[in-house]
Design a protein around this nucleic acid. Structure first.
Lengths: 229, 229
DNA sequence: GCTCTGACTGACACTGACGTCAGTGGCAGG
DNA sequence: CCTGCCACTGACGTCAGTGTCAGTCAGAGC
């Protein structure tokens, strides 16, 4: 097989567009941005490398100078987005007097919603494409989710010890919370809601976490504490 | 191109396995079941038709006798599953005295969780693969979700009129509820929980919807009713 | 026993996406 | 002006997966 590729290559047509020479990192960004846009429009699985390079205005070969394959761009995009979300979350403290726990919780909700509404494209990609790519990718994603859930779970456990959080399996409560938030964001982004609605959504979720919404008497099932009001 | 396929076909090797002749519908089920199992194991996008027919123990050609393409099996599987879920949900009535609204809500939660834990594979497929297949499929899925959300939204609206449901935008509350349930199910299935945990999960979600879990004073934000306890 | 039917089979032709790499040209340094 | 460098280009070979269809065979009907 060595050297057997002695065939004459047709010279690459006439004109070579030769995009302006551009700082490395900038070109990388250019491709990432293009990929993101195409992913949102067509969906990750429907997208081909050709789609991406066409959108980025570079040649197929250039793409492979910056990324291993299609997964690599997605991976990079998700990493950055996950980092943004992680950074938006602040660990809750009980000792600092100026910001009550309630305020801190609210602040976290607000921050996450803010990031997701600011990065609408990425939010959509995270929820609709990042899932079901392949086993490796799934592991990566799970790790991210787990870290969020883990943090939340611990906070809830602490909260329970302090009587700030009602009872229930902390991990389950964490899932319920994250699930509610995810769906809210997914739908918000899908409906085209922008950053301006952050406040409203934050409030709704906060109230939901604080008091639920069912005001109903259970006549037969085991009655739980506090049904008076 | 017409007739140009005049080449001699090699006779299909020696032995033709020729699976027993079997009632049409049965064979269809056989393929569906095999597809489901493979989808769960490899994920929809990683699965090829060859994987499916190998698992089903039929020939490639047979597959195309029963399904248009790969999407078609998935579509069929999801349709059946969606139907099961839809049927599990009972519209809530306020007039019948014997089963309180609370019980009916609980019953619905229990039923949905029951179906999903009984059909673990399908639950996993629905949540991890059904998303991001293609535009048409996405529309189909959205229609299903929307019908569920719509039903829930209307129920919540009715509930608010009766004072059974706290205030808040009904549609948003519906999203929060569905989101919480989805995540709970996804994680439960992922952790290998079985039908036996239905009761526990139902209880947790019900309590969550009834009273949330945050028991915290908001010192600065607009105070909402009922913070005493 | 013979024929006819139709479910079933699997080799084949085809396609579309992939990753490569020989070649191009702008530019910095001599 | 020349030369070497290197970011960039795009045509090419490859291949995995698809859908088809000529061919096979089991069993029903005569």
């Amino acid at each position: 097989m060595p050297g057997s590729r002695a065939s004459v290559r047709k010279k690459p047509t006439k004109r070579i567009r030769t995009g302006a020479v551009i700082p490395k990192e900038e070109r990388r960004q250019q491709i990432l941005k293009a990929a993101r846009d195409v992913f949102v429009k067509r969906g990750y699985h429907q997208t081909t490398i050709d789609d991406i390079v066409a959108a980025a205005g570079v040649a197929r070969g250039t793409y492979y100078l910056y990324f291993e394959d299609k997964r690599a761009v997605l991976s990079d995009l998700i990493d950055r987005f996950a980092a943004q979300i992680t950074m938006a979350i602040q660990r809750i403290t009980t000792d600092e007097a100026e910001r009550s726990v309630g305020m801190q919780v609210r602040e976290n909700i607000r921050a996450v919603i803010g990031v997701c509404l600011r990065e609408r494209s990425m939010t959509k990609i995270l929820f609709t494409d990042a899932t079901g790519v392949d086993a490796d990718f799934h592991r990566k994603l799970s790790t991210f989710y787990d870290s969020v859930v883990q943090l939340l779970t611990e906070s809830l456990k602490d909260g329970q010890a302090l009587g700030i959080v009602g009872d229930g399996e902390p991990r389950v409560l964490a899932y319920l919370t994250v699930g509610a938030l995810k769906e809210l964001l997914y739908q918000a982004v899908g409906m085209g809601l922008t950053e301006e609605t952050t406040e409203v959504l934050t409030q709704q979720l906060f109230v939901f976490l604080s008091e639920g919404y069912l005001r109903v008497k259970l006549d037969q099932a085991p009655q739980r504490r506090r049904r008076t009001r």
